[in-house]
């Protein structure tokens, strides 16, 4: 039951990164691919009706972590206190920028929210990437199941760990590259005209950036967590998923040459889902790795709620997810097709 919830939680987080990832990505490259007001409205119209639903996956995943693994929720959220609160502020600003930009016709109003949108999207993604870096590297979890950790360190390559240190910042930049590419490919799919043209050109350059950052991140991982890749020796699934992920990644440039605009985006979806699923499979059963003592590691088995609670949760979770898939299918079908720059408003 704990292993099942570990998988479901991972799946929800993956869906979250893929869905909110494309609207974050669109925010990161917003100023690069959309130059005029009409083009900016075109990009916002592509993400405007769906960003909120995408972000609910974060709340739902957070809620699932809370109910299935309360100890890990308590330890993780209090340990990452500062970055989480800063993340909240950025999510607030970003949500407002999307929702409020269209309410007034003034240039200054638009410029203010445009900058807010870009700034918040970039920082949010770096923080999320750094969060994954922290999960891989581990945190100084103590015997009571709590930890505190400085927000940043001297950034030198040595074990003085902080939420932002040399490794997690690289992980954050890797995430920035991945989601910038993801969002750009989303815009290739959902827009036409000048925005689509610039997105295709940008995607080709971003692909090489992501490739370089991936190599650096993988190379640095053993320096912070020598044992990270060890479980792979006995597990086939994470390796297989990693290969699937790479296949998705290397498919992107090929697909960009073709005429079907959704395919490059799907390549990116496979890439992101594969790499995250592979990471979850490697980490299992650990939820939070302790750098002080491996015995303090918080696992799916030591942090979980009672079996009765997990069983009840499974019943409503399945019912809920059937409904959610229904809503999302309905919404994305209603919004199918490309968004043009000529379309007035959303």
């Amino acid at each position: 039951m704990q292993a099942l919830w570990y998988s479901l939680l991972s799946a929800m987080l993956i869906v979250y990164v893929i869905l909110d990832g494309f609207d974050f990505g669109a925010g990161i490259v917003y100023g690069l691919v959309a130059k005029t007001d009409a083009e900016r409205r075109q990009v916002l119209s592509a993400v405007g009706p769906v960003w909120d639903g995408n972000e609910v996956w974060l709340l739902a995943a957070g809620g699932t972590l809370f109910f299935a693994f309360p100890r890990a929720y308590a330890a993780g959220f209090s340990g990452f206190y500062m970055p989480l609160v800063i993340l909240l502020w950025l999510l607030i600003l970003r949500g407002l920028s999307i929702e409020l930009r269209s309410h007034e016709p003034y240039k200054l109003w638009h410029e203010f929210w445009d900058w807010t949108f870009r700034f918040a999207s970039i920082l949010i993604v770096i923080i999320l990437g750094a969060a994954f870096g922290n999960i891989i590297r581990g945190v100084p979890l103590n015997a009571e199941g709590y930890f505190a950790i400085p927000l940043f360190t001297d950034m030198l390559i040595r074990p003085s760990i902080g939420i932002l240190d040399y490794y997690t910042v690289v992980a954050g930049l890797f995430a920035l590259g991945v989601l910038a590419l993801h969002g750009t490919l989303f815009l290739v799919w959902k827009t036409d005209g000048a925005v689509r043209g610039r997105s295709i050109a940008l995607a080709k350059r971003l692909w090489w950036t992501v490739f370089a950052l991936a190599v650096v991140t993988f190379a640095l991982t053993p320096t912070v967590q020598p044992a990270f890749f060890a479980p792979l020796a006995g597990r086939v699934w994470p390796l297989f998923l990693l290969l699937v992920s790479l296949a998705g990644f290397f498919y992107i440039p090929t697909a960009l040459k073709g005429t079907n605009d959704v395919r490059p985006f799907l390549g990116s979806v496979v890439f992101i889902a594969g790499i995250l699923a592979s990471m979850a499979g490697t980490l299992f059963p650990n939820l939070i790795i302790s750098t002080t003592n491996p015995a303090y590691n918080m696992t799916a088995y030591t942090a979980s709620a009672s079996t009765y609670g997990l069983q009840i949760g499974l019943v409503w979770w399945i019912i809920g997810m059937i409904l959610v898939v229904g809503y999302f299918t309905f919404v994305y079908r209603t919004l199918s097709g490309k968004v043009s720059a000529q379309t007035k408003g959303e």
Partner: peptide, 26 residues
């Protein structure tokens, strides 16, 4: 609940986590 009230979340999360997660999902 998690950032500021970890003691409470750890203590009661096995129960109230249910309704909070359901609020998200439903």
């Amino acid at each position: 609940f998690g950032t500021n009230w970890a003691g409470f979340s750890n203590f009661a999360g096995g129960v109230i986590g249910q309704t909070l997660a359901m609020e998200g999902v439903f």
